[in-house]
């Protein structure tokens, strides 16, 4: 049982990080960034490519390459996140729901297939040399095991969330973000650079997703071009579950979904693991669309 808890929390931290991206974008733009799951996937690939680049340039230094690889992954994913907004969403800002959503879906398809065609249709292994210390170091608690990686996943989510909270509450950029989310026109009138703020939101979400991506890459050991879709959908469910636009909600939602999945797997068998997320999604939307902690979206005209 404890093992279920541990596994669930580990997955949950990943969902939480990705969910933050969804929730922030929805809070500020009122649209679902369908392509966010692909940005997460790009973060995974960015990490492996980044580590590869470092190894080519510097040789095999474990910590250095890992850290640099993370930086490169974040930069890579953020770049894509920024480009996504700029190209596919900016023009459609005021438009009827159908337009940005279709554009987002199209973008998601483009990104997924691009990686499939550009890199490989099969799988890519995460270089074990760098992940081995994390996956092979573990502690035993009763009959359960916690690996160092799981602790790192949980801890980094915590640290990043705190960092995000500080950013949003205590910095100018955070205030700009909150203001734009609340009322875009008023914020513009107050002199807030709306376009830049929105871009920064995307970058922020993508950076978090990239960190999650690298960790999942190490956690699973293999990546594929379709690794983003499932995580994306579940993370979105998490965001909705916690209350869309609500940042603590997204984190809470992430952990709930992670735990629910592992609980279902443990009780009903893993055949039903994938269904858990969708069932929760439907239940939340039908019974309590506001989410657990309530949503925070600007009043849409």
């Amino acid at each position: 049982m404890l093992q279920v808890l541990i596994n669930g929390l580990a997955r949950g931290s990943v969902y939480a990080l990705v969910a933050l991206g969804y929730t922030m974008v929805y809070g500020i733009l009122g649209m679902i960034n369908f392509a966010h799951g692909e940005v997460f996937m790009l973060g995974m690939f960015g990490a492996v490519f980044g580590i590869g680049l470092c190894t080519t340039l510097f040789g095999s230094h474990l910590v250095l390459n890992l850290v640099l690889g993370l930086v490169l992954a974040v930069a890579f994913a953020s770049g894509w996140g920024w480009a996504n907004e700029r190209i596919a969403y900016r023009k459609l800002r005021g438009a009827n729901l159908l337009a940005p959503l279709s554009s987002a879906i199209g973008l998601s398809i483009v990104l997924q297939n691009f990686v499939m065609l550009a890199v490989t249709k099969g799988k890519v292994d995460f270089p074990h040399y760098y992940s081995d210390t994390l996956t092979k170091t573990f502690w035993t608690i009763g009959s359960a095991r916690v690996t160092l990686l799981q602790i790192v996943m949980f801890a980094s989510t915590g640290i990043l969330c705190l960092g995000l909270w500080w950013l949003i509450q205590k910095t100018r950029m955070g205030t700009a973000l909150r203001a734009t989310a609340q009322d875009r026109t008023a914020a513009a009138l107050m002199g807030i650079p709306v376009d830049k703020t929105i871009s920064r939101t995307f970058v922020l979400g993508s950076a978090l997703a990239a960190v999650a991506g690298m960790m999942v890459g190490m956690y699973q050991g293999v990546l594929a071009f379709d690794s983003g879709y499932a995580v994306g959908l579940k993370a979105f469910t998490a965001a909705v579950l916690g209350g869309i636009g609500n940042i603590p909600g997204a984190v809470l939602g992430g952990f709930v979904i992670g735990l629910a999945e592992d609980l279902t797997s443990s009780t009903l068998g893993s055949d039903w693991k994938q269904t858990t997320g969708f069932v929760i999604l439907i239940l939340v939307l039908v019974l309590r669309p506001r989410g657990i902690l309530g949503e925070r979206v600007s009043d849409k005209v």
């Binding site: 279709s102 398809i109 997924q112 065609l117």
Partner: peptide, 14 residues
């Protein structure tokens, strides 16, 4: 096929 399809979707929307 799918890549082009996605690009068409985005292009049409834009």
């Amino acid at each position: 096929r799918l890549l082009i399809f996605g690009m068409i979707l985005v292009a049409v929307m834009l």
